[in-house]
Simulated assay, not measured.
Amino acid sequence: MSEPVSALQGKSHQGFVTVAEAGPTGMITIRGDLAGKPLARALKAQGLPVPEARRIEQVAGRSIAWMNPDELLLICAHDAAPDLTATLAQALAGEHALVANVSDARALFTIRGGKADQVVMKLSPADIASLPMGEIRRTRIAQVAGSFWRSGPEEITLISFRSVAGYVMGLLEVSARPGSELF
């Protein structure tokens, strides 16, 4: 069996903050009735809640994010994603729902340091300064779609499509160049 390879194989860059591609990460898209009991039961069986709108919850090394009114994104260990996808699909069989392993179609980045928010402020129209812990934003990162959240006091995590991972990393590297701080 071959080893998983992430979009940029864990590439990192040190500027006034550290930006890094996180390496292989499990990601599962779950689409369906977020207010429905079957979905709540399927997630509860995995120890996960249904997050409120624009929220991301972290439970036992996994995260589950609200992406839109009928979509969630479950983030887990890369090697756990296939079995977890199958388990959730089985639990939702017969429901109007979709469970898809999108791990190899996405890239995950971390921006770490005291001015991590400044890197994202340069790239997104979202109000990063007032972004609280536990809130996820789905927006534009320059010219591409992306999502991000404050994953720690001095850390922002960002997700993009794998196909644009090199472009996103380039944006993050330029935005983190020493001397380009906003304040």
Rank of each mutant, 00 (worst) to 15 (best):
V120C: 10
E95I: 01
A97F: 00
V119G: 15
D117L: 08
I128T: 11
V99Y: 00
P125T: 00
A116Y: 07
I136T: 10
L108M: 12
A97C: 07
S103L: 09
G146H: 15
D127M: 06
L123K: 05
R112V: 15
L131D: 05
A142R: 09
G134A: 14
S130L: 04
V120T: 11
I111T: 15
D117S: 08
S130W: 01
E135K: 11
T139D: 15
A105P: 02
G113N: 02
N101C: 08
G94M: 11
K115P: 05
G94D: 14
H96W: 06
V144A: 10
S124C: 15
E95R: 05
V99L: 07
I128E: 06
A129Q: 00
I136Q: 04
G113H: 01
E95Y: 03
I136Y: 10
I111H: 03
E135Q: 07
F109M: 09
R140D: 05
E135N: 11
A145G: 14
R137T: 14
V102Q: 03
I136N: 10
L123C: 05
E95F: 04
V102A: 10
R106W: 00
N101K: 06
P125G: 01
R106Q: 07
A129L: 08
S124I: 13
R138T: 06
E95C: 14
P132N: 00
E95D: 11
S124H: 11
G114N: 03
A145C: 06
Q143R: 10
K122T: 05
A126E: 14
K115H: 14
V102W: 02
F109P: 13
A129T: 00
K115E: 07
E135S: 11
D104H: 04
A100P: 02
R140W: 04
R137D: 07
K122N: 13
R112G: 01
D127C: 03
Q143H: 10
Q143Y: 04
R140E: 03
T110L: 01
T139G: 12
A100V: 11
D127A: 09
Q118K: 12
T139W: 03
G94R: 13
P125D: 04
E95P: 03
L98I: 00
A116W: 02
N101G: 05
G134S: 04
I111Q: 02
V102D: 08
A129F: 01
I128G: 03
V102G: 03
V144F: 09
S130P: 01
A105G: 13
R137M: 12
I111P: 02
L123M: 15
A142K: 13
P132W: 04
